[in-house]
Design a protein around this nucleic acid. Sequence first.
RNA 1: GCCGACGUAGCUCAGGUGGUAGAGCAGCUGAUUCGUAAUCAUCAGGCCAGCAGUUCGAGUCUGCUCGUCGGCUCCA
Length: 638
Amino acid sequence: MINITLPDKSIKSFENNPTGLDVAKSISEGFAQNCVAMEQDGTLVDLNRTITKDSRIKFITTRDKEALEILRHSAAHVMAEAVTFLYKDAKLTIGPVVKDGFYYDIDMEPVSEDDFPKIEAEIKKIIKAKKPFTRKEVSKSEALEFYKDEPYKLELISDLEDGTISFYTQGNFTDLCRGPHLPHTGLIKAIKLMKVSGAYWRADQTKAQLQRIYGTAFFNKKELNQYLHLLEEAKKRDHRKIGMALDLFSFHEEAAGMPFFHAKGMDIWNALLEYWRDEHKAAGYVETKTPIMLDRSLWEKSGHWENYRENMYTSVIDKTEYAIKPMNCPGGMLLYGIKPHSYKTLPVRAAEIGLVHRHELSGVLSGLFRVRAFHQDDAHIFMTPDQIENEILGVLKLVERIYKSFGLEFTLELSTRPEKSIGTDQQWERATNGLKGALDTYGKEYAINEGDGAFYGPKIDIHIQDALGRTWQCGTIQLDMALPERFDLSYIGKDNEKHRPIMIHRVIYGSVERFLGILIEHFAGKFPLWMAPTQAVLLPINDELLPAANEIKQMFEKAGLRVEVDGRTETLKKKVREAQINKIPLILTIGEKEKNSGTLSVRTLDGKVRFGIKHEEFLNTVLEHIRERKLDLEIFKD
RNA sequence: GCCGACGUAGCUCAGGUGGUAGAGCAGCUGAUUCGUAAUCAUCAGGCCAGCAGUUCGAGUCUGCUCGUCGGCUCCA
């Protein structure tokens, strides 16, 4: 007699040892069909495992998050079967589940995406056959014997404990695997191979080059199509494409990884920084600027020469060695050090839009997202220990204001002391508690990454979520216990003694370049009015109206708008079309009627047209919209 | 840096197996003067990323360099 306890605390009893599937079926046939695995006393196992003792069972259905991982893991096995069937010499290595699907690293002849249809056809056959996955536990010696011709598997097995090794078989294909798996291959309703790339065995360049085949799988076609649609949407929004199309920036061979900003790109840039300065001034920051090239001795003092040398550009002039700054902090330390400080004048909040250069590996460069020269919206805050909590709280509030103003949601992560670190236990405790205290007071949920902090202090990372639901780490607040020490910074306390200030580095945009790239994709190039490079374009209906359009342009420019006139002798249709494609928020048409009545017809990017808007009304509405940095594209409401 | 793919007009792309380059859009010029997503015609535009090599002959084949794109963290 076996008693099964279900999550709702109900108990089901069975005469003979049931499988998980039997239990699921006893609930209902329909329910059983949606089950992919189960948790037996908290351990994830196969649904077709026989239950031999009283257990707590929780079923994993296709709706659970774990189910997708199991599905994709099974899909990886199916792909491996297909590949080994088609390529007899292929040697399997590992095939894990990743964020958007799965991959399998295989030692085989190079394949390309052209080979996918062939492999996918084989995969479809395997799925159609509804082959059951069966688990077999084997001894280490059995496993080694089974894989005597598979060097990678032998290496994997040799790292495993005897008694913990299991094989999974579907049809004629067996793979070393911890499991669990789907009941059978037929449950993989939607699978697609995505791409191939090279990868090294154990990510080691000295080892064999493997073929990494990426795929993804879902429980139904609809979800797969949604995922593919998202990828397409992301592709359309690619900031590199939009940046080119809207004439915002470019890259040149003469300076790989270092963006050139065009006039229109600079309009956005300036709008971003103007906003940033407004917020920082209001939050009690001062703005500073330090040189981009500093003497080697400074980098030795800061520790960068020792730890960051391979990423730094250097130059020798007059026998003196300089390094171009990869970070702003050492310069910031010098600024703090130029005069004595008192506890009365702390905290010091010194911001700097610092241009930094880092020699990133050539293969990792990617548009504005990964560059070699970029601006950090840095700030160094120097404070007394009892100011930590309040200062961090202040940064968190500023972060919230700024991200919210772009319509970006965000999440927080606290990273604590890593194994390799400097400082005393007491220092770390005080610093970490300061960050925690601020986070708790702030009140938003946060995750904790134990041991993920920098060697010089704990940190809070801020992840933003864009309009497509993708996440990016931009902001970070790092407490630094090393640099004040290395630069011997101090302040005079109430006791008239010298004390070491606490220092944090923090960025909110992170890299201005990268943040701009994220915003391009977030807004799909349709920037809110206050950021848009060209805010309004005037379209005279015929050449006679061109002088009138130019007059209005001058008036609007005086009022502070970025306005253009499209004075070409083209049809209105064409000029409207191009203005729409260029994503200009306000498309203003001027014909005889408008000229005579001092009005405009206003078309916004949503395609709506409003006629007969007086110049004054237009300016009032638009200037207010800009002043308040509103996000909606529908600028005029009915 | 490593692996793979790619690099042709300002942009998007065609150019089997080698025989000194083509389209659409953009641009110029002309006609059209037009009411909310493409008016018509004409013209011009290229050291085929760069450097070597094979060849009578290279956009096409080979090697190298530069650049771009996708990977290189996810451990059966």
